[in-house]
Nucleic acid binder design. Structure first.
Length: 293
DNA sequence: GCCCAGGGAATCG
DNA sequence: CGATTCCATGGG
């Protein structure tokens, strides 16, 4: 695979070479994280800004294979290289995913993978992912982003460029009614329960991350009120490096019902089922419906 | 099994 | 434009 490296450092912007087909637009448009927004700098074809791991960052792309990151070299190596999954060999992963199905099913998967070219599964903070996907249940992306922005401004630490995602302790101390006032609705008690269980140590997220069996990790997260299989799968995929997690939401149900006559068993994709899921999701949600087919 | 629970975005008529 | 639908989970 390409090995990403800092090729230049100018005016606080790092030039990262060797990033393959990384798509800033698709990676931050596909609904996996809620704290990044388009930033308008006409210099770049696509630019986003956001906050993760308590740090503000800007990302831009102009040409293929190259990424521009407004960050220190230290933060790039310590945080963004891993967060953006630049160290993972997506060429090999995509080959494996494309080879997992044959016939008509294989053609659908090929189209989905092609439409999703450049998507990377971000490695988000476990607590932030868990809390965010509790907020996401029965909800839409613009409103999820508003709630999380309000939650961070009110209960997150002030940092340069914005606010860090609130800690479980901070949300626990705020209390359920304060969380409800963020317009979280019936999810307030779920978020509060998660904040209590994590801050007290009753639920150890690091231990969950280290569990070998998917079912064990899922079972641990589902001890939280309001965390079912879907929220658990999203949390595990986006926050716990469980690339085998396969969240089934309405779009995945649609893509299977519409295109896979004999259904689709996530197990055929093996350890990368979650990445295949993301391609199928993105294809059905953002691409094929726009084409009207 | 069935309905309902925030609320706002998306879609429909 | 207003009306309706959508959404993941738990509890009554």
């Amino acid at each position: 695979m390409n090995v990403p490296y800092i090729a230049d450092n100018k005016n606080g912007w790092l030039t990262i070479e060797g990033v393959g087909d990384f798509s800033v637009f698709r990676t931050f448009d596909c609904g996996q994280c809620f704290r990044f927004d388009p930033a308008c700098d006409p210099t770049y074809a696509c630019e986003v800004e956001g906050i993760a791991f308590g740090k503000y960052v800007r990302l831009a792309e102009k040409e293929k294979g190259r990424l521009y990151i407004k960050a220190s070299e230290k933060d790039f190596y310590e945080t963004w290289l891993v967060y953006l999954s630049l160290d993972r060999d997506y060429i090999a992963i995509n080959e494996k995913i494309k080879g997992s199905l044959s016939g008509k099913d294989g053609e659908h998967m090929l189209r989905a993978a092609s439409a999703s070219e450049g998507i990377r599964i971000l490695r988000q903070d476990p607590w932030e992912a868990l809390c965010s996907f509790i907020v996401s249940q029965n909800n839409n992306i613009p409103r999820i982003k508003k709630i999380i922005a309000a939650m961070s401004e009110k209960y997150g630490e002030k940092i340069e460029g914005g606010y860090a995602f609130p800690t479980p302790e901070s949300l626990r101390d705020a209390g359920e009614s304060a969380i409800f006032e963020l317009r979280t609705g019936f999810r307030a008690k779920y978020i509060y329960d998660a904040a209590c269980k994590v801050s007290s140590g009753e639920l150890d997220l690091l231990a969950v991350k280290n569990m070998a069996e998917y079912a064990d990790a899922e079972g641990e997260l589902m001890r939280i009120k309001g965390v079912g299989p879907k929220v658990a799968a999203c949390s595990l995929l986006f926050g716990f490096e469980r690339l085998d997690a396969f969240p089934i939401d309405v779009w995945i149900k649609k893509v299977i019902a519409n295109r896979f006559e004999n259904g689709l068993d996530p197990a055929v994709f093996g350890e990368y089922a979650g990445i295949a899921q993301q391609y199928l999701f993105y294809y059905e949600r953002y691409v094929s419906s726009a084409l009207g087919d």
